[in-house]
Design a protein around this nucleic acid. Structure first.
Lengths: 154, 154
DNA sequence: TTTCGTGCAAACCATTTGCAGCAGC
DNA sequence: GCTGCTGCAAATGGTTTGCACGAAA
């Protein structure tokens, strides 16, 4: 499916809900669709990227659009516990996971069906309906040892 | 090991680093040690709980102490993507995981060694040193269906 | 032409910080 | 007594919101 026809599906769905397709929403979705696989942006990142492309979209609209597209499931909200969220295209709705370095904040992506299956099993046991599965490994990159600056998270 | 002797170990370690044991730090650690298994508090929760116990500890100190105890590995920082962190006692340093209902914000705890092992394996493959493993299932409790209010996260 | 969406600025909320006085060690 | 800790209030940073205008449908 082409980027354009995938985008058109999104817009059709928005319209069917009485929502509008604006140049701002088009542009933001386009940016996410053209992003290299595994790239995720913060609201601020996106705002700056838009500005660099001469799209003067306000920060408020940036936030509102990110929230809208996430609520519709077109974007996924990533939370790496850094105080701000990241967003990525929720392309195939198959969860993939992240390793986050607590020193340099770099992230690495991986997929693991075993982990997903554990998630599905537990959700079934509890009788809850899964929205998303999240598996994160907080770690320290090789060569970056600074014991005092780490924080345990779960 | 008793609560008191575990607390004394913590304090010994703080002192050995040139840090001080203050009534505020004692009280906060004590609260976490007396918490029912699986309970986690936000900074605000803790602050209010202290106030209810007639411990007038400032919010700033509450935050500073939470950060300190987390950095030393005595507490774990939990991030449920609600805009504020939660903290729990990092008792046995064995990761346990959470199911979070996106409607009512209730959380459920579970342990799963399979998931932990996947984490250890991946960290080893990448050559990184694990600080913490986090596995979260965002879901909707039975009977709570409100399609528009969900947000996809990962 | 009726909503809905946008930009702007102000508001919000969790968290952090500068500073002066206080208190462990 | 030195130095770290506390409380206070102000600052910060990410995100949200009220409002008046502009634009999809």
């Amino acid at each position: 499916m082409s980027v354009d026809s995938r985008a058109e599906n999104v817009f059709k769905n928005l319209r069917s809900k009485g929502l509008r397709v604006t140049p701002q929403r088009e542009k933001i979705l386009q940016i996410f669709m053209e992003l290299k696989e595994g790239t995720h942006l913060s609201a601020e990142d996106l705002f700056k990227l838009l500005a660099k492309n001469n799209e003067n979209i306000s920060l408020a609209t940036t936030y509102r659009t990110l929230k809208l597209l996430s609520q519709f499931g077109y974007l996924r909200e990533l939370d790496f516990a850094e105080g701000h969220k990241h967003y990525e295209l929720n392309k195939d709705k198959k969860p993939h996971h992240h390793v986050i370095c607590l020193n340099c904040n770099k992230t690495m992506e991986f997929e693991d069906d075993l982990v997903n299956q554990v998630g599905y099993r537990i959700a079934e046991e509890l009788g809850v309906e899964i929205v998303d599965i999240q598996f994160k490994i907080y770690a320290i990159c090789p060569g970056q040892h600074d014991d005092e600056s780490r924080t345990h998270r779960a």
